[in-house]
Each structure stands twice: as C-alpha cells, then as structure tokens.
Design a protein around this nucleic acid. Structure first.
Lengths: 201, 201
DNA sequence: GAGTCAAGTCAATGCTCGTTGACATGAGCG
DNA sequence: CGCTCATGTCAACGAGCATTGACTTGACTC
C-alpha cells in the first residue's frame, strides 16, 4: 500500500492484455485492502492502483464495489479447515499460536481481520450473519460433536474470536513466564470445551 | 436515528440559547452515533441533526470531528467498575448476562460497541492502544491480583471481548438447555481465571 | 429601548468517492 | 495488411463529506 516500488514494477512490467489475470489481480488487491482497511475506508481507486489496473475495469469485471466485496469475502473463506487439526494436540497448539505474534500467522490473521472488519462495518455487517453461521459456527459444532455441541460451539467460537482480537491488539508475541501461563490457561479453556463432560466449577 | 418524532420534538421545543446544553447534546449524540456506525460512517451532519444543532457548532465547541470523537470516547469510559462486582457471584452473574440479549444491557453493549468500532477502524485504532491498556487491561489485572495476574488478565480480557462479540452477533437471548450449558461453561472459564491456581488440564 | 456580544444559521469551498460512457489500443484472425 | 473486438484508458459527473467564514438572531446590560 502506497508502495512506490510496486507502482514502478507495475509500470515497468505491465501485464499483457489478459482479462483473467487482471480480474485475478484486482480480486487479490481487494482481499488485501478490505482486510486492512475495511469496506468503508477502502477506495476502489486504491485497489485498482494496487492491482495495476484502472478503476473502470473493476466495474466491468465485478459490477461494482459491493459485488467485488462479496466475491472477495467468499474467496477468503474456503473452509478454514478445523478438520485438519490433530485433536490430541489441538488445544496446546492453538494456544501457542495465539500467544505468538499475529505476523507469524499471516494467512489466518489476514482472513480474521477481513471478517472482523466486515462484521463491524455497518454497511457490510448485515451480509455476514448467514456466512458466519454456515462457515464458522456450523463447522465448529460438527467438529466438537457430542452433547450440547451447539452451546459448546458458541462458547468455543466466542473464546476463539476473543483470543484473536486480543492477539491483534497486542500485536507482538508474549515472552517468558507470561507466555507459559497464557498458553496453559488458554489451552485449558479449549480442552474443557472439547470435552463433553460438563465443566468443573 | 432517522427518528421523525425526534426532529419534530427538536423543532417544536428548541433549546433556549445555552452553549453548555448544546455542547452536551452534541456530545451525547456523538456517543450514540459513533457507537452505532463507527467513526468513518458517522457524518457530523447526522450528529448535529440528532442534537438539534448546526454542524458549524460542532467545530466551534469541539474543534473538529477527531477532537469530538476523542472526547466522546473518553466520556464513554469513566471506569467500567469491576470494583463493584461481588467476587463470590461474579462468574455466574457475568455468564448469565452474556447469555441474555444485548438489548437487556444497553449501557454496557453501547460502550462496548463504541470501543469495538473504534478499535477496528483504521482511522481511530491507533488512538486506542493506550486507552485499552489503561482502562481495560490494567483494572482487570489489579482486580484479579495474585500470581501471574498479567497473563491471567490477558486471557480474561480476551475471553470477555469474545463473549461480548458473540453476544452482539447473536443479537438475542439464549434459551432452555442451551442457555444453561452456555452459562455453566462461561462461568467456569471466568471462575478458573479468577483463581490463582493454575488451570487443570 | 439601544447596544453588544455570544449563540446559532447559512451558503460556499475544496476534497474524495463510486460510477459512467466515450475513447484509444493492441492482439489475433481473415 | 486491414478489420474487429476484447482490453485498457481517460475525463467527467454527481453525491456526500468536513471545514470555514460571513451572516443573523436573541438575551442580557445599561
């Protein structure tokens, strides 16, 4: 963003006339910008410049700002993949990741930022209810399984969101004993939620 | 917002010329609008209309949009008051509140929305780091006390944020067994974090 | 009641934005 | 080569925004 090198690269090395490549470049730039600035603060002109294309092409290829946003949103959520996690180590690995810097986990941070910005913008928030239900709460519920999966999934999702927000605000990795304690406590929360047994009080 | 009755009321019952009252009305309207729409989507014109005042008065009394925002932000955070909670029942009461509808807890929801919107807007996010540290993480750390209060406060704050976000997205109260399970699980998380003993795994 | 100054109003300015349609260009085909 | 049409460029429009300074109005003092 505002990267003069990028501009020079674009100018010096223009794409051959290729509609598909241009469309893809615009979509990629849109994913970045929307995640970084949110819907309302992102200008189509910036996306176009970032993609080395003209604003008019955004309209031609996507129809408009809102349509571009929706496509970028859907493209950013190709099933997060709780499936792939090893259940035995999940709680500890997840807690460790949450203790580390968000920069160490670019892809996830990026997607989460996109979702968070979209959920807190009054313009785009209404578009999100279904998506969150379908691609977030639903998969977590199925992955947890067992008794009261719905309620446990809610607590799980809420905790997860909170930890991600905290990591985003914190901006850097935790260190030393604070890191250890953080990881233990967070892992304990996830582990308890994965268990069907009701929580001990 | 967009309340014709309010407009009529304002027109029919104009304030007597009173700088202080006008200033207060603008500030109150700003708190509402910024919480509802976030900094970027809020127009000074709307704030002024809501307050029954003219846009130019915003500049006269506050200096500009950003200054007004900062004043509204500070005015919205007069020490949340963890102090006042009864420690014995805290976890369960807090969990119950989080299971209920956000509309049942107007004031807190309102303030939290303000903070969340402010934290996710690229314009205002930089202004928040210090405020969050001072008025959120700090008080929680002091309230928790004991060993590793810093790390526990982080987990506590993150969980709390997550539950508030979840409640905000959910929009309505939980019912029946789902509500019971939710409350138990959430209360268990808070209770564990309040305890100095390291979490059981 | 005339004068004064704070309080409130108004219109204009300059900016950014999404959108749009007219125009230029180049690659591929006959 | 010359035609053609997809591809890319450009300038302009209209709306909405914060800001600004000149203007009007009303309450209070003498």
């Amino acid at each position: 963003m505002n990267d003069p090198a990028a501009l020079i690269r674009v100018r010096a090395n223009p794409r051959k006339r290729d509609a598909e490549a241009t469309r893809a470049a615009i979509l990629a730039a849109a994913k970045t910008q929307f995640a970084l600035l949110g819907y309302d603060c992102t200008a189509l002109r910036d996306i176009a410049r970032e993609a080395g294309a003209d604003v008019a092409l955004v309209k031609r290829y996507f129809g408009g700002k809102e349509a571009l946003f929706l496509e970028a949103l859907k493209a950013s959520f190709g099933s997060d993949g709780l499936r792939d996690w090893d259940r035995a180590n999940f709680a500890h690995e997840m807690a460790t990741m949450l203790a580390d810097s968000p920069h160490a986990d670019e892809a996830r941070t990026h997607r989460f930022q996109f979702l968070l910005r979209a959920a807190t913008s009054p313009t785009t928030a209404p578009l999100l209810n279904l998506l969150i239900q379908d691609r977030f709460l639903g998969p977590i519920r199925d992955w947890l399984g067992g008794a009261d999966a719905e309620a446990r999934a809610r607590v799980f999702a809420a905790s997860y969101i909170g930890f991600l927000v905290e990591r985003l605000i914190r901006g850097e990795a935790l260190l030393g004993r604070e890191r250890e304690v953080f990881i233990n406590r967070v892992a304990a929360i996830f582990a308890t939620l994965m268990s069907e047994r009701d929580a001990p009080i």
